[in-house]
């Protein structure tokens, strides 16, 4: 199987600080891959190199076999859609915003969406449940609804790869689950490939097929693999420099990471856990 996205030896830094150091991995069709790591480890920088917002100082990034630096923004937007932490709460309607997802497919002097464009936008608005508030403005809906709208817009681009930078960062627990459940369902239904930066290790464990754990100390990948392989007590303690425990989630059996506060740690030591 050919990978959708391949990073090979990607490095990036500012002056003497190396943020990304020789990053290499591939994502395969239909995979949900999450990038995890402590604050400042370069997760967002890595996403920016993939989105072509910044150019890596070394290494290559290929999407479906083509080097992204050789692709125009427009050509890239046909392969890859993005969902960021938030979207600008502009005064445009949800429907108009979702329809902007067809922009990469516009001709040079095309000013209006075709019937087909509108059908595609409508289809993904229905799938994501945002059609119900399609006529509301972005600045009138909640943060959770805005993220669903951003997902609808990304899907409207009909991409092979969706790149998401902490799409649940500003959401409460119910919206986090709602958004990630939706992404998971759509991923299977539409054979999407998803690359997502996630801060929350438990969400990453629950939803991702594979994880990339970045190490802040040297800017390198610490470990890549299934949640079970990556989310071990020793690797998390080493990378995050904090006290945690990992147990199987009683429902999903996926690794479940929970923190141990100072007081609790002392008590557990006393009782020998």
């Amino acid at each position: 199987m050919k990978p959708v996205l391949t990073l090979q030896g990607v490095s990036f830094g500012y002056k003497k600080v190396k943020i990304l150091n020789d990053i290499s991995f591939s994502i395969f069709p239909g995979e949900f891959m999450a990038i995890i790591g402590p604050n400042g480890c370069g997760k967002t920088t890595l996403i920016k190199t993939i989105l072509k917002s910044i150019t890596p100082q070394a290494g290559t990034i290929h999407i479906q076999g083509r080097e992204i630096q050789d692709l125009s923004n427009k050509a890239l937007a046909k392969h890859m859609a993005t969902v960021m932490q938030t979207i600008n709460p502009a005064a445009m309607t949800v429907r108009d915003y979702v329809q902007l997802g067809r922009l990469p497919f516009f001709g040079k002097y095309q000013f209006f969406e075709t019937r087909k464009d509108m059908k595609i936008a409508e289809k993904y608005m229905q799938l994501t449940g945002v059609a119900d508030f399609g006529d509301a403005k972005l600045n009138e809906i909640s943060g959770g609804e805005r993220q669903l709208t951003a997902i609808a817009r990304a899907l409207t681009q009909e991409p092979t790869l969706v790149v998401m930078d902490e799409p649940t960062a500003h959401l409460d627990i119910s919206h986090q689950v709602r958004v990630l459940d939706l992404i998971n369902t759509l991923k299977n239904r539409l054979s999407l490939t998803v690359l997502m930066v996630l801060h929350d290790l438990n969400l990453a464990a629950e939803y991702a097929d594979r994880l990339v754990l970045l190490n802040k100390n040297n800017g390198r990948i610490f470990k890549t693999g299934t949640p079970e392989a990556v989310l071990t007590e020793s690797s998390i303690q080493q990378v995050y420099q904090t006290r945690i425990r990992v147990r199987p989630n009683p429902v999903s059996k996926k690794p479940w990471v929970f923190l141990v506060n100072d007081q609790a740690a002392k008590q557990t030591n006393e009782i020998g856990i």
């Binding site: 427009k74 046909k78 922009l103």
Partner: peptide, 16 residues
């Protein structure tokens, strides 16, 4: 219209 959403999002929608 795309720039209304910010430079990054406009670029991700294929705008130079």
């Amino acid at each position: 219209n795309a720039l209304t959403l910010g430079d990054d999002e406009a670029a991700n929608l294929g705008i130079n």
